[in-house]
């Protein structure tokens, strides 16, 4: 039992070390992949554009729910005009980056892991290596950067969509004053403090999710079973990483 736990811990540390080395190599070979932009563009398409629908629809629904629930609570205290503030702050600071990150991990992250894992299983990575093409530069780096670039854009779209959803419920359906909705929001939301910090968060999540996805694919056991396990691990570790990082970042950013 104890030996089992010990082995797991050692395995975890070993993987962490390998992941760090992997990140180093990834960054080192990134220059090559930026020279050929079309590779990265392709990955932005696969991880960004193809996640667009789920991000927009979820953002809208989250905004609608926030609008409804927020109004319920606020109107008890007679301050339903603050609905805009509530919706905008919760989305830009927390829900936008976090929920978009979780969706991104399960939509794009898992796809990246599956793709790289499959390439490993069918020896495509080894073949590439034998053709004197570095698989980290050719396969991993573009996917990593595709994710890193897509993620903040997706989170911004999610937040924007959510605020529109909140406006739809609050102003168009319930009848909160339109002017108060926007002006209170504008008075309370600070660009540097709320919006830039939200973008920083989503960027950090993008780095974390992309690294996990690429690494798990690269590190997976080259069997069908190994690939499916790697996909599960990608989604689980991405979710944990996002939530843990969110806590750390929040405590740094929004103190006082």
């Amino acid at each position: 039992m104890i030996r089992n736990i010990g082995a797991r811990v050692i395995d975890g540390v070993w993987r962490l070390g390998f992941a760090s080395r992997f990140l180093f190599l990834l960054l080192r070979y990134s220059g090559q992949s930026f020279l050929r932009l079309h590779l990265t563009l392709r990955e932005i398409y696969f991880s960004g554009v193809l996640s667009l629908l789920i991000i927009l629809v979820s953002g809208l629904f989250v905004g609608l729910v926030l609008g409804l629930q927020g109004y319920e609570t606020l109107q008890r205290y007679g301050s339903s005009e603050a609905l805009g503030v509530l919706v905008a702050l919760s989305l830009t600071r927390e829900l936008g980056p976090v929920v978009a990150g979780l969706l991104f991990a399960s939509r794009a992250g898992s796809a990246v892991t599956a793709e790289i894992g499959l390439m490993k299983t069918t020896e495509q990575l080894k073949a590439m290596d034998m053709m004197a093409v570095n698989p980290i530069a050719r396969v991993a780096a573009p996917r990593f950067w595709g994710g890193v670039i897509s993620m903040p854009l997706l989170a911004a779209l999610f937040s924007a969509m959510g605020i529109l959803g909140g406006w739809l419920i609050g102003v168009a359906f319930i009848g909160v004053d339109d002017g108060a909705f926007w002006s209170q929001m504008q008075a309370a939301v600070d660009i540097r403090y709320d919006i830039v910090n939200g973008v920083i968060k989503s960027f950090v999540f993008g780095v974390a999710v992309s690294l996990i996805a690429v690494f798990e694919g690269y590190d997976c056991e080259p069997t069908a079973e190994g690939v499916s396990r790697a996909i599960t691990r990608t989604v689980v570790s991405s979710a944990l990483a996002i939530l843990a990082l969110d806590f750390v970042l929040t405590s740094f950013m929004f103190r006082g």
């Binding site: 069918t122 073949a127 053709m131």
Partner: peptide, 13 residues
């Protein structure tokens, strides 16, 4: 060098 892998290892995409 050229290498032919067991099942070809063609790039599926």
């Amino acid at each position: 060098m050229g290498m032919l892998f067991q099942f070809g290892a063609l790039f599926t995409d």
